[in-house]
């Protein structure tokens, strides 16, 4: 079985997030310039939670 993009499944996940039943565990937010470091960490397969790369500031709304 392949993990596949599925809007219905993603909607279920969105619902659980809105209900505060699940919350992503982001342990590091790195600038895009640190993509190499992020890739190397992911390759260890021992990251705690998730690493995220940031391209732009959060929009104000």
């Amino acid at each position: 079985m392949a993990v596949k993009p599925d809007a219905a499944d993603l909607a279920e996940i969105t619902k659980l997030i809105e209900e505060k039943k699940i919350q992503p565990v982001v342990t590091q937010t790195l600038p895009l310039t640190e993509a190499g470091d992020a890739l190397a960490q992911a390759a260890t397969r021992h990251t705690r939670g998730k690493i995220v790369l940031r391209m732009a500031d959060e929009p104000t709304r």
Binding site: A42, K50, V52, L53
Partner: peptide, 10 residues
Amino acid sequence: IAAGVNPADP
């Protein structure tokens, strides 16, 4: 705005 990092990337 932001992109995730996954074991699939490496």
